[in-house]
Design a protein around this nucleic acid. Structure first.
Lengths: 235, 235
DNA sequence: GTTCTTTCGCTACGAGTCGTAGCGTAACTG
DNA sequence: CAGTTACGCTACGACTCGTAGCGAAAGAAC
């Protein structure tokens, strides 16, 4: 889902003196035009162009990596003008967020009948996702940019990180239904536990693949799951 | 330790196998500990310039982040010419690796008498390190660059990642001496376990701080340590 | 001391990218 | 039809990168 710049936003241009590069993107960019209230009046934006741009972004990411990805390259590969990109996304960062976010939608919590099997399945899915070149090229670069750009950081969390916490919640709920986990005592503590589990799984797998550069084998997954299951299951 | 590309030494960059990060850096003269072949003949490289450049890099990283860091800026801040930077480091990546690697040297395994206390202490140290702006700005950006640049990836592992695995090894050894952990059965399995523990601690804390953007509180550290201690200690 | 070697700061350069502006045209709405 | 908006194209200024050339400085070797 593109950023959907407000059609009539005279604001634009924030010179910010000594900051030509990243950071400090425009403050106002609301207009979730998806609501469909205001029917556009003039020529509609080409949905095909959106799709071509996002696909071209993913392809270029896989081929050239983050550093080699340029807006001009994406534009020509998608068959559109560079200005068309900037009409939809304020900068490379936001474009890549949208281009990559969809990759994470395929993750599902399978409910295989045991907490161990569920965890191992999710870890395997995540490992497969992290094995794809476009994911590798984009994920850490996006996280790195998000450190300095709060707007982008929020956007990454909303589009990529937070949606995946559902996996932990679903797995926990299923395990509680099976009696493998204690029921929640209070909501706050449960929420914190979800956060811990999520950071542990996501962080560890990412670190293993992207930083240590080692593959995720079934054997590794088994041992990592041992680690997770220790204090969770009733002993 | 600067890249120190000798004008007539195409081989160079031999890992030297002795700890690359610790110890006073460029205190030794420009000519690295090269195997005694080339005694410097002309004007030696200024060690003060090395220090000023690395310090300027850390300062600029903290202020401007990775995207805002330019070689020209670092040069002028360090009071040297831009060409002087390129005589020592082939590119921004390598410069930042050296500038940041020293930050990790302060991590120590305290041996507080219990495995739990040791883990919590190391997590707290790592959390403090990740709270520093220059670390935040550099770490993920370096990891991201390392995805595409194998040379850089190796360099990051040698200078930053691998040296910290000693913490896990030391903690394990101490816990085994106390009887908190079983002695190692075989070396290979022990090595894999060290890798898992390391990826889990480093990855989780990094994900918590840099991606989720949540602080590392003592309460969080306690719960995370519960997770780690589950299957490790004798039940 | 002198000579030799290397580094130093400086300036300038070509190549590349960014993000914007202007223009004429295409597409869709009322 | 007119009105409105998106589109492709070209061009632009600002910026960064990494390199090259120069004269001068600072030691090392003699």
């Amino acid at each position: 889902m593109p950023a959907a710049q407000p059609p009539a936003s005279p604001e634009s241009t924030v010179p910010t003196s000594t900051d030509p590069a990243s950071s400090a993107p425009e403050a106002a960019h609301p207009t979730p035009e998806a609501v469909g209230t205001a029917r556009a009046k003039g020529r509609p934006r080409s949905a095909a162009a959106d799709r071509a741009i996002l696909a071209a972004t993913r392809e270029a990411l896989a081929e050239l990596g983050w550093g080699g990805l340029t807006m001009g390259h994406v534009a020509s590969r998608a068959g559109v003008a560079k200005t068309t990109l900037y009409r939809r996304w304020p900068s490379k960062n936001e474009l890549v967020v949208d281009a990559v976010a969809t990759l994470f939608d395929d993750l599902v919590m399978p409910d295989l009948g045991s907490l161990r099997a569920d965890i191992e399945a999710v870890v395997a899915q995540f490992a497969d996702l992290l094995a794809r070149p476009e994911t590798q090229a984009a994920l850490l670069a996006l996280f790195a940019e998000g450190i300095r750009d709060r707007q982008l950081h929020r956007r990454i969390r909303e589009a990529i990180v937070d949606p995946q916490k559902r996996l932990v919640r679903q797995g926990r709920t299923a395990a509680q239904a099976r009696g493998e986990l204690e029921p929640d005592t209070d909501a706050g503590s449960a929420c914190e536990e979800v956060d811990i589990i999520f950071d542990t799984i996501a962080g560890t797998v990412e670190h293993r693949v992207l930083v240590s550069g080692e593959p995720i084998t079934p054997e590794w997954t088994r041992r990592f799951t041992d680690l997770l299951l220790g204090p969770l299951t009733t002993c």
